[in-house]
Design a protein around this nucleic acid. Structure first.
Lengths: 131, 131
DNA sequence: TTACCTGCAAACCATTTGCAGATCC
DNA sequence: GGATCTGCAAATGGTTTGCAGGTAA
């Protein structure tokens, strides 16, 4: 069990993440929180982001390209990554709509499939228009 | 277009990858190639791995945890990552069996879905037995 | 001969960590 | 008062890169 004490820095990070749809990197979070708490350090941002992930209050995304990103919505959902501008967007997929792929994967596999992580790639609506 | 000259180091890396099922990290590749070419440098291993990826002869996997891994089989297929021992294994999924998820993702999305990357998580057969 | 390739070492980038002091409860 | 938190700066780990000398074609 993880014990925590109140911290205004952590509160601010949580609030920022819950209100943005940008799926920011740790550094972007740092930039934003610094507007309110100019003395906050990048180390504190990383520590709190990891703590919030451990508490299950936010989610960490590792899309492969570059840095990890963070999502204030801890409920299971899927993400899209634009191959042109690298933006990350939530997808509007019915919860459970992809659960069946675990069974497909489990056929002919001797271990135990417990979950999956999926990223969809392509062009976001902006990049689709701009060329 | 990428132009290349023969290199015994690159040949050796390609051969090692085509023959192992370990999905090794760059460092593991380095260890193995060093048995035959003790003077090879890690930089050269990285350069050749990236070159082979660009040539489409191997595939780079980014399972999120720790370092990237490399797969000598460039044909599209899916992977399993063990949450206990972190091993990576090929899954025996019929080619195309998951193509339909792109259409699920595209419903209600304004951009253009061109592909996806999926990792399945759970316990490998070994770790399933050993507890 | 001239790309391309190599080893080496330094640089880079994202992330983590040790420390001494501050803060919450 | 004691555990948790902070800023700072240094350390870490994975990967890339500049350079000067080698090698394939």
């Amino acid at each position: 069990m993880i014990t925590t004490k109140f911290s205004r820095q952590r509160e601010s990070i949580k609030e920022y993440l819950s209100q943005t749809k940008e799926h920011p990197t740790a550094d972007t979070v740092y930039m934003h929180i610094r507007e309110k708490y100019p003395n906050i350090s990048l180390g504190t941002v990383y520590r709190n982001l990891n703590l919030l992930v451990d508490l299950g209050e936010i989610i960490k995304l590792s899309p492969g390209n570059g840095s990890d990103r963070f999502d204030g919505n801890p409920l299971p959902h899927y993400h899209f990554v634009c191959t042109e501008c690298s933006c990350v967007q939530d997808l509007d997929i019915v919860p459970g709509a992809l659960d069946h792929i675990n069974r497909i994967a489990e056929a002919g596999f001797n271990g135990e499939i417990q979950g999956h992580s999926v990223f969809f790639y392509g062009k976001c609506s902006n990049c689709k228009l701009n060329n």
